[in-house]
Design a protein around this nucleic acid. Sequence first.
DNA 1: AGGAAATTGAAATTCATTTTCATTTGGAAA
DNA 2: TTTCCAAATGAAAATGAATTTCAATTTCCT
Lengths: 169, 169
Amino acid sequence: MFSGIRKIISVKSTSRKKPGASPKLSEKKERLKLFLKEKGFKSTKQRDIIASEFLAVGEHVTAEELYNRICKKHSNIGFTTVYRTLKLLAESGLATERVFADNLTRYEPLAAEEHHDHLICLKCGSITEFEDQRMERLQEKIATEFGFSVETHKMELYGRCRKCGGGNI
Amino acid sequence: MFSGIRKIISVKSTSRKKPGASPKLSEKKERLKLFLKEKGFKSTKQRDIIASEFLAVGEHVTAEELYNRICKKHSNIGFTTVYRTLKLLAESGLATERVFADNLTRYEPLAAEEHHDHLICLKCGSITEFEDQRMERLQEKIATEFGFSVETHKMELYGRCRKCGGGNI
DNA sequence: AGGAAATTGAAATTCATTTTCATTTGGAAA
DNA sequence: TTTCCAAATGAAAATGAATTTCAATTTCCT
Ligand SMILES: [Mn+2]
Ligand SMILES: [Mn+2]
Ligand SMILES: [Zn+2]
Ligand SMILES: [Zn+2]
């Protein structure tokens, strides 16, 4: 079903609805430092730069995309370190890992406690985020009917966004 | 989020609720033959054997799993042909491609018109299928609210099945 | 039967991800 | 501050599933 899509879509992120991430930037970087200290890991220039850039971008990025942005200004930072730092950010709870239909691993700045699902346009690749309590409750209800307890879920709607003819087909 | 899971789970399929697939087996193989003829493709021994085995297994399998079953009795059938035949089956509408959290491509015998979603146990890997019209309607509703039209969706609930302590945690 | 076109399967390739390893660096302890 | 060692870095290699290549074989239309 997705075999064709894999090659076609190149998921680009839409700008976020809540640009309120900016004021918390320093707070987030503080969280990372605490996490590193707790774990006996070290704070490094690279990690600081990578985390800053990641939080600045603010949307769903692959390790490669983030690396490409960073290496223009910091030729001394390698892809591997970007890759590893994104994993660290996810571990620390500052980022969330996502894999959409194109099978690439992306990260977005999102605390582990927060949550949302995604609408993904197959034409332009834009990503729209939504959180819907009716959906969350219904998932729980269905799971319960099967004697199942939910730990995580994946809920992605693929189709056409408004700009790409979503309303009228 | 799924980084740990990827290595842990090896998704095994549960036996299906509807074993009514058996009587339609010949009908399905007829459908495949028609599809091949329409497309100008050829009917071959290999395709026949692979399709039969796939329909006989009846659950979510990777190309490799199916190949391993087949090559025991038919050492003359290669992995590549199994892989390509599964793609063909999906194209013909006799199979559906699925990618769960372990990121492996699986196929299940399911006509393109039919539909269901999945509950996947992170402990034992069992897969439970469900179809819920409330869920389908809610997805449409949410999409509409965003001016979005849905073509496909992915809805997977990961957690504990009843046997693995799903009810009480 | 003849022959063009499709199929097969072993091997090679692709490509994102992950690991390896020699070297460098951070930061706690002296 | 200097010492010292575990952690970090990054280039390169490895991994592994998915996909493509290509020479040999098979299908099936005439
Ligand atoms: Mn998101
Ligand atoms: Mn299924
Ligand atoms: Zn769009
Ligand atoms: Zn289970």
